[in-house]
Design a protein around this nucleic acid. Sequence first.
DNA 1: CGGCATCCTGCAGGATACTG
DNA 2: CAGTATCCTGCAGGATGCCG
Lengths: 126, 126
Amino acid sequence: MKKENLRKCKEGRQNAPITDVLSRLGDKWSMCTVLMLADHGTLRFNELHQMIEGISQKMLTVTLKTLESDGLLTRKMYAQIPPKVEYKLTPLGETLVPHLMSLYDWANTNMPDIKASRNNFVIIKN
Amino acid sequence: MKKENLRKCKEGRQNAPITDVLSRLGDKWSMCTVLMLADHGTLRFNELHQMIEGISQKMLTVTLKTLESDGLLTRKMYAQIPPKVEYKLTPLGETLVPHLMSLYDWANTNMPDIKASRNNFVIIKN
DNA sequence: CGGCATCCTGCAGGATACTG
DNA sequence: CAGTATCCTGCAGGATGCCG
């Protein structure tokens, strides 16, 4: 088990699933998007646009497309005017949510310590 | 609980602990570094340098400094020639490891599906 | 050995305008 | 409404060289 981590990391980024996955979720918006869909089940493009504060139209498009290509969410388009597109998590995407929530809880719990540590660190170094 | 996620995301990136934390761990090297230390307990600079395939000296320095400032690891320097510096996780850093491992396992388990999905997606779109 | 300083480049990602 | 297309900029991060 111990040696297992080492091996995976030494294989390089490309072949390390954890790094691969995190390089996507760790970007500016993917995490938020997945959590939004986890909360609401199904959302339209503009609903996501409004919910995720600060995201640009372009980045929302890119983020959704990436998550879709990874099979984490589905894009359902209705052929009508005006258009209507709905996004929702796939079963695979759903299985990811608990792990994110677990990390989410950790972050919430330890954020005070982390922030305190950061402040302290800066003071010492200057 | 449901509404909680929404609120946090709407607060903006700066105040959302999960985004804050993930924006650090999600970078190119932090994850690998933490897992290495989780595996080996204590490591010197050059040991990390060799273990984390592909990382540059500069980025290792930056990554270690960031993790240290967040209070996730400690830097212990020995006043001797040649210098010797040891890195190890703090208790706070240790509490993070299980969550990362959980995500790590998910990534390993589902990577085949994700890769298959990616390949399929590209074919369709072209 | 374990860095820091400097230079340089690619590309993530914002702003803006247009479209089916 | 739900996007594309284009342009533009900042900065992440690599390469290289120097230092205690």
